[in-house]
Every structure is written in structure tokens, then in C-alpha cells.
Simulated scan of single mutants.
Amino acid sequence: MCHQGEIYQEVPHFCFLVSCGAEQFLLTADVDFTQEDFSDFSQTSLDGVFVNPLFFHSKEGQQVIRETINPKEVFVYHIPFDADDVLSMRKMVKRDCDKWDSCPVTPLWEPMQRECRAVDRG
């Protein structure tokens, strides 16, 4: 898939669909969500999608998440560390999470942050 950012267009880039038992997660890395077609994922039941802050922030990215990918949960990762956040991306992610009105969203703020979920296997 295309890497986000004009200067990275020639850089090989991959998204990964990871299955953990019955659960499936899409890791989008730094995909150019404005150029790629995610419709193949619309038929896949995704327990979660991992997106970077720019994917989660943009109207186009949010539309892809809501209308095409339609996951049970969104995880925002690749958030700059507090000391490295010269563009105030952490504040942007916080605002975006507060406004998000779809499925649950979990920002991954800290190094080695752990999130545990109970899975109902019926």
C-alpha cells in the first residue's frame, strides 16, 4: 500500500491483518488513507484497527474508519512521546478522542502501555 507523505511514495509499505484466535486486527501503520481503497476490509469483521494520529484526525480517515473498516474498537498509536511532541499531536489526539462518537477508541500514549480486554467467547 502507499506510504503517507509525498516524499515517502517510493518507500515499500504494508498493512497487516492479524488474527488472534477468533479476533482480527488491522494494523495500518503509515498508510496513505487518502489514496488507498479499504473496501476489501468492509466484509471483514474487525475487532480493532490501529491507526496513526493523522489517520484518526482527518475527516477522510474518520470516514474510512466509520463507513468502510467499521471496527469494534480503534487504537491510536504512533503518538509522539510527551517530550518529543513539538507539533502538539497529543492534544490533537485528546480532542479527537473526546469528539469521537462511534466505537470505543483507545489512545496508546505511553511506552509499553498495556490494555487488557475480556473476550466473550460465547
Rank of each mutant, 00 (worst) to 15 (best):
42 S>V: 12
32 D>H: 13
38 F>P: 15
109 W>R: 08
87 L>F: 10
94 K>P: 03
5 G>C: 01
119 V>T: 12
89 M>Y: 01
34 T>L: 00
7 I>C: 07
18 V>P: 03
83 A>N: 13
34 T>G: 05
81 F>Y: 09
84 D>M: 09
39 S>M: 11
31 V>L: 02
27 L>F: 11
65 I>Y: 05
32 D>I: 02
35 Q>E: 12
116 C>K: 08
33 F>C: 00
9 Q>H: 07
99 K>F: 09
30 D>E: 07
76 V>R: 02
95 R>K: 10
90 R>Y: 08
121 R>E: 15
13 H>P: 11
56 F>Y: 08
62 Q>K: 11
46 L>F: 02
35 Q>S: 09
31 V>C: 11
68 T>K: 07
82 D>E: 13
92 M>P: 05
105 V>F: 10
101 D>F: 08
118 A>W: 15
72 K>T: 14
7 I>Q: 05
20 C>R: 07
40 D>A: 10
39 S>Y: 06
10 E>K: 09
26 L>W: 03
22 A>V: 15
53 P>L: 00
36 E>C: 13
25 F>C: 01
35 Q>D: 08
119 V>N: 08
2 C>M: 00
60 E>H: 14
104 P>F: 15
37 D>R: 15
6 E>R: 04
108 L>C: 10
56 F>M: 01
70 N>C: 13
63 Q>N: 06
101 D>T: 13
99 K>E: 05
85 D>A: 14
110 E>I: 15
92 M>G: 08
77 Y>E: 10
87 L>Q: 10
26 L>R: 02
43 Q>Y: 05
41 F>V: 12
113 Q>W: 13
47 D>E: 03
112 M>A: 05
1 M>R: 04
78 H>I: 14
106 T>W: 14
23 E>T: 12
81 F>M: 09
68 T>A: 02
22 A>D: 10
87 L>E: 10
59 K>R: 11
32 D>T: 12
99 K>P: 03
42 S>T: 15
105 V>Y: 09
6 E>Y: 04
30 D>W: 02
38 F>K: 06
95 R>T: 10
18 V>N: 03
8 Y>V: 04
27 L>W: 04
70 N>V: 08
119 V>F: 13
21 G>H: 12
70 N>I: 07
51 V>A: 00
6 E>M: 04
23 E>L: 10
103 C>Q: 09
43 Q>R: 06
1 M>I: 04
54 L>F: 11
50 F>A: 02
29 A>R: 02
64 V>D: 03
36 E>I: 14
122 G>D: 15
14 F>E: 05
101 D>C: 11
46 L>H: 00
64 V>M: 07
61 G>N: 05
100 W>Q: 07
83 A>V: 15
85 D>M: 09
